[in-house]
């Protein structure tokens, strides 16, 4: 198998990989430190919105430019897991920033981005909504971290053990 992902797909993939991993660590550090909390929130919020924009671009790109097929020899179950985990990643990449934005809206927080430019609320200021969305943001973040670990584990296994060209299709 020699087909690779188009350049734009690879660029989006690796840029988002770095940013999402950074985002997960910033999020974890944020809630575990009172002294660094505000500095980290100030990174977390705009980075989240950037990731929302990037995943939207990426989804359009994914629908327009179809990825190279998985190796014919790959067992159907593995193929299914590969496809399902990719769509789970897409779902979480959309859900996390949207739930974050929604939870700040429901909590009645202003959402400043740059200077006095604010994002509008996407949900009403509502106690019950906030109480659901705030913990959901945390649970989804852990789920994204676990999915990322599975994705990385699978990628490295393709590269080192299967040696079937799947890993190479995303690096060159």
């Amino acid at each position: 198998m020699t087909q690779t992902f188009p350049l734009l797909s690879r660029l989006l993939h690796w840029t988002m990989a770095v940013l999402i991993l950074a985002m997960l660590f910033v999020g974890a550090a944020m809630v575990s430190s009172l002294s660094d909390y505000s500095r980290l929130v100030a990174i977390h919020r705009p980075l989240g919105i950037l990731l929302l924009v990037l995943v939207a671009v990426r989804l359009i790109n994914r629908l327009l430019a179809s990825p190279p097929p998985l190796p014919v020899a790959m067992p159907p179950l593995l193929k299914f897991v590969a496809h399902a985990s990719h769509w789970l990643l897409y779902g979480l990449m959309f859900a996390l920033p949207l739930v974050g934005w929604g939870m700040l809206s429901a909590g009645g927080y202003p959402i400043p981005l740059i200077g006095s430019f604010h994002l509008p609320p996407i949900l009403p200021h509502d106690k019950a909504l906030y109480a659901i969305l705030r913990p959901a943001h945390t649970v989804l973040a852990y789920l994204l971290f676990l999915t990322f670990l599975a994705h990385l584990g699978a990628a490295l296994t393709h590269a080192l053990v299967f040696k079937d060209g799947v890993f190479r299709s995303m690096v060159k």
Binding site: A29, S32, L149, L156, L160
Partner: peptide, 28 residues
């Protein structure tokens, strides 16, 4: 080797989240 890479990243995440230092003063 793959396992070691994954465990290292998970460990770094746990350390960042304060799970390995229960004495850290966080909001909770």
């Amino acid at each position: 080797g793959v396992g070691i890479v994954l465990v290292s990243i998970a460990g770094a995440f746990a350390a960042t989240a304060g799970w390995l230092s229960p004495g850290r003063l966080d909001a909770d």
